[in-house]
Amino acid sequence: MTDRYAIDLSVRPGEDLQDEEMADQRGDGVHGSSFDMLRSNDDGASGQAMRSIEGWIVLIAGVHEEATEEDIQDKFGEYGEIKNVHLNLDRRTGYVKGYALIEYEAFSEAKAAIDNMNGSKLLDQTLACDFAFVKPSNTNDDRGRRGFSSRSRGGYNGRRSGRSRSPGRR
């Protein structure tokens, strides 16, 4: 699997976000199916790991409620520099919710971490590790998106002035 992906904030047919006037004529901001998506530029099968905007995100499940970012760093730092850690807390108890999301820059680092750490133990709990994001099941498929077209939605009638162009479109 290659590490190189182009980022394409895709705009679907009939949904040119640059055309403010068209959007205003339609009279709503959620018309159609213009959900931004990251696209990979290879033809990898659906379900394969998907690159995020700056790297590869690994999900760690089964994280002990008393685990710390340092524990994660110690175990997972071995496979590459961890660019970001989200070790979210349970809002009720204040303890770790049970999962962590970490970011590696390179696919090979993330893959090595997953291969080595999936099924390993941290504070006596078995971890499950995998990529957090995968390629969509069918990128060209409009299934489930039809519902968005010709939807009107009260409340903000085309007041979409000031929408700036999405960053990163090439």
């Binding site: 901001g29 959620v30 959900f35 998506m37 790991a49 998907m50 995998d130």
Partner: peptide
């Protein structure tokens, strides 16, 4: 003048 943000992503089975 904030505007609509719509994002779609696909997460793994895990």
């Amino acid at each position: 003048n904030d505007s609509l943000i719509k994002k779609e992503m696909t997460v793994s089975s895990l």
